[in-house]
Simulated scan of single mutants.
Amino acid sequence: MPSAPLSSPVPLSVLDLVPVSSGSTPRQALERTVELARRAEAAGYHRYWLAEHHLARGVASSAPALVIGLVAGATGRIRVGSAAVQLGHHTALSVVEQFGTLDALYPGRIDLGLGRSGHRGSPRAGTAGAAVPERAGEAPSAAREARWVDGVLIPAPFSPRGLLESPYFAVQQALLQLPGAVSPAYPEQVDEIRALLAGDYRSAGGVEAHAVPGEGADLQLWVLGSSGGESARVAGERGLPFAANYHVSPGTILETVQAYRDAFRPSAELTRPHVVVSADVVVGPDDGTARRLASGYGLWVRSIRTGRGAIPFPSPREAAGHRWTEADRALVADRVDTQLVGSARTVVEGLRRLRAVTDADELLITTITHDHADRVRSYELLADAWRQGGAA
C-alpha cells in the first residue's frame, strides 16, 4: 500500500537525470527511471521531475517530454514534469503543444519547468554569440570565499566560462540549433508560453494563434534558475513558482532565492513566493556505506566540468582507481562538498538546515548511485525518515 504523501509541512520531490551507470545501457536507464518513479510514488514523494541534457553518454534524459509520458503512464498520483525545458533549443509553440498533449493524457498532473539553457539572443550558428549564463553580481561573487551559514556550506561560486568555451559546448550548440535561427529573448518566450496556454496569444500584427493541444491545459508552470539573474527575475515578476538549484550552483543559492523574492509580484497563480530548492543526496544504512555509494560522484562531475560531457556513472571500484590531482579536486569541490551523504538521520539533518537557510517551501532530491537498487533504497530511506519527523 502506498505511504502517506510527504507533504506536511515540507514536501519532498524527485529530480531524475535518467543516469546511465557504467556497464549499462540507455534502455536500462529508462526502464529504471520508470521503476524508480513507481517506487517514489509509493514512498509518498510529491513530484517527479525529469531533466533535459544532450550529448552526454552518462545520462539518457535528452527527450524529457517523452520520458514524462512514460512516467506519468506508469504512475497514478505523483505530479510529473520537466526540470527544465531548455528554452534556447525550443519554440514556445512546440513546448506548449508537447506539454498540452501530456496534460490531455494525464490531466492535472503535469508540471512545465522552464530554463534559460541554450539562450544566447543571437544567431544559432556555430559558437557565434555564445555567452556565459547570467550571474548577477559576477565580479563580487567570484571573489567571495566559501562560508557556512547556519550549518549550510555556501562555497565560492563556480564560473562556467571555461566549460562554455570548450569544443564540446560548441558542438552541442551546432547540433541543437538551426543555422541562422534567432532565439527570442527569454522573458518573451515565457510570456508567449503563458499566452498560448491561456488562449490569448496575439502576434505583433494582432493575429490570433491557438495551440491544440495546449490551450487551456491544466499545467503548473515553473521557472528554474541557478543565479540571481534573469530567471529569478522572470519568475518573480510574473508571480510564478521558482526552483533554485543548490545541487548545480551551491555557491549562488542564497542570492538566487533572494532575487526571486525581491522581484515577486502576486499573480493569479500565487499570492506569495513559492520556492523549491534542489539538493544532491545519497542515503545509506550508515554514513560509511553511503560515502562508498556516493564515491563516483566527484569523477562524474569532473567529466562534465572538463568539457567531456557526463560519463556513465562510475562504480565505487572504478572511482577508487582514479588518481586525483589538486586541480581536479578544486574543479569539483563545490559540488562534492555540498552533496548530502550519510545515514537517513545525517541527511535529514542536512536537509532541514538547507530548508531553514533558504526558507524553501519544497525540497527537490536528486540521487545517483552506480547500482539502481542502492538508488531506490536511498530515496526510500529518506522518505521514511522525513515522514517520521524530518520535515518538522
Rank of each mutant, 00 (worst) to 15 (best):
G298W: 08
D200K: 00
S378A: 00
V376L: 09
Y106I: 03
L153N: 08
A4I: 08
A360T: 08
L363E: 04
R335T: 09
A40L: 14
V283S: 09
Y379N: 10
H370T: 03
A195L: 14
G23I: 12
V276S: 14
V67R: 05
E188C: 06
A310R: 13
R38H: 12
S226I: 11
E41I: 01
G342T: 06
L105H: 03
A356Y: 00
S62I: 05
H53W: 05
G81K: 07
T306E: 15
D374N: 13
T101D: 11
P167L: 08
I311F: 13
Y297I: 10
S227W: 01
L70F: 05
R120Y: 04
D334W: 01
D16T: 02
L178A: 14
L197H: 06
N245G: 12
V95N: 00
L153H: 06
R79I: 05
D286K: 01
G162F: 13
R308M: 14
R375V: 02
V85N: 06
A51M: 02
E138A: 14
P64C: 07
W49N: 00
E192S: 15
P316H: 10
P157V: 12
G214E: 05
A268D: 11
A83F: 00
Y106T: 02
V275Y: 00
P250D: 07
V96N: 02
S249E: 15
E31F: 08
A385C: 12
Q86G: 06
D371Y: 01
V234K: 08
L114D: 15
P155W: 10
D359G: 15
D384S: 13
A204P: 09
R272P: 00
F99M: 01
S343Q: 04
S203K: 12
I311V: 15
A204G: 14
Y260D: 03
P250I: 07
R147G: 10
G342C: 07
S343C: 09
P26M: 04
Y45Q: 02
R124A: 15
P11A: 10
T25L: 03
D218H: 12
I78T: 05
G342Y: 03
R265M: 09
Q189C: 05
P250N: 08
R57L: 09
G390R: 13
L340M: 07
P2G: 00
G108K: 04
L30Y: 12
V149F: 04
G108E: 03
P140F: 03
R291W: 05
R353A: 09
R120A: 08
P285N: 05
P11E: 11
W324S: 01
